[in-house]
Nucleic acid binder design. Sequence first.
DNA 1: GTGACGTTGTGTGA
DNA 2: TCACACAACGTCAC
Length: 596
Amino acid sequence: MQLLLCLSKPAQHVKKNPLMAASGSGSIMWFRKGLRIHDNPALEYASKGSDFLYPVFVIDPHYMEPDPKAFSPGSRLAGLNRIRFLLESLKDLDTSLKKLGSRLLISKGEPDKVLIQCLKEWGVKKLCFEHDTEPYYQALDIKVKEYTSAAGIEVFSPVSHTLFNPADIIQRNGGKPPLTYQSFLKLAGQPSWLSSPLLTSISSLPPVGDVGSCEISEVPTIKDLGYGDIEQEWTPFRGGESEALKRLKESVSDKKWVANFEKPKGNPSLFVKPATTVLSPYLKFGCLSSRYFYQCLQDVYKNVQKHTSPPVSLAGQLLWRDFFYTVAFGTPNFDRMKGNKLCKQGARSFFFKKGYRSLISSSFHNIIQDFALRMPSLNVVMIPWNDDDELLAAWREARTGYPWIDAIMVQLRTWGWMHHLARHSVACFLTRGDMFLHWERGRDVFERLLIDSDWAINNGNWLWLSCSSFFYQYNRIYSPISFGKKYDPNGNYIRHFLPVLKDMPKEYIYEPWTAPSGIQRKAKCIVGRDYPKPVVYHDSASKECKRKLAEAYALNQKLNGQLSQEDLDNLRRKLAQDEDPEPKIRRQRRKVGHLT
DNA sequence: GTGACGTTGTGTGA
DNA sequence: TCACACAACGTCAC
């Protein structure tokens, strides 16, 4: 309310038309993701044949308003970097809409309630919004469609966030999502829209109609949202479609770089000019169309002699995105370890008792019903992860004592973005590599702090990295010392994000606890005082993790993945009994060191 | 049932 | 720079 009051001002580009509601020629374009003008079929359809167009974005307080209890500045669900990125994206969209004779109408509240109020007040006959497969939006859309169906309002909700429609892929695979990238590629083939040009510009839009009694504001600032004066290091990446297209143009203009791109060969320690496009935050909010990006890449590939291919190529990265969207859409409880049992044993009851039947479009319902009968097939390994708030906080707050890990966590907090392999390093360290903590805890931290955090991709990658699903070679552990050193022997990345170590000689920068005390004094960094000692011994901790994973895998195999809570607890006790005490001893020493 | 395969590990030795 | 051991997983195609 405070926001609306302080921003209430006469709306520009708004034409009064008291007859509009009766004429029924108005449409609402409901922006959620898809914050762009180019390749936006919902916007295109909304503007066709409409005398008035209402471009609406609803600010959900859960997503935007300050939560003082959260572990970093921001709302309950999002860190401040991502909130700011979203506001910048909205501002850019508003500017673009104004150039086309329209504007963005910002409202605030529970999105479904606000939208239904707008639909009633404005008397429109058409509601357009981009289809979204995330559970949050699926549930939201059900509520809105219940109203539109009863009110006789046409709904147009095209798939334009991804290259393919996840439901189509699942249908083609007999009702199950493909579980490997290669099988996904085979099913997907070439996108149907690839041969025809996408609509990348619009010359004008219908004017905005009378907004009546609906509370509408301009795009708020961070301060308007109640954050006051914030002192923090902000992400260097600016939100919005204009910035996205500029970045895209820069990336694809280097044809040689695009043609030779191989994701696993990228250097995660580069930060002045990152080794990847950093287009992921723009794809996340739909400031950039993945289809337009894909088409631009195909144009480059056509004009070079040879180029890399999926999974490592740039186009392959967009296909990875679609792969995770597809598996996530076809897997109930994709974001949990413990939902798997429910999937395997009680898929029918899950779908039919929990109301998911109404959640899914009728055309897809038959497939899902069949899918439920066949049993969902994503195997999530049940692992008795440890629960240790102290270790989790050390990881989250960049004080593990391993500079490579801590520097990445500082980059996460300050930039909201890190290279993919840097994410692998810290995710492996938290889960199966060193700390043996639950991937869901790490997922929560990433989900909050990343500016590109995406429900399907984030959960998919945590399942992958923790060897819980998709990837199972738990012997392959990233070393918190040698992995970074291989790319950046001088430790420039560490020196930048952990200035406390900027004068540490390169011989010790990845393992400062090994530096002689004279060197530590000269570098003005005494380990245990200015920078923490390691919270675990990597050598023994990683061996312990491998042993635990081996036992957990064996039990999962024995019980065919059907572990009860009791089975997990028993295994946890057994693993603790057999545990090598060495990592714990180090933790005790560190703790004492901190207290004194 | 079997064999090939899997975007992105590390350390060692040639 | 490359091959190999490490130790061995699940998925897919046959």
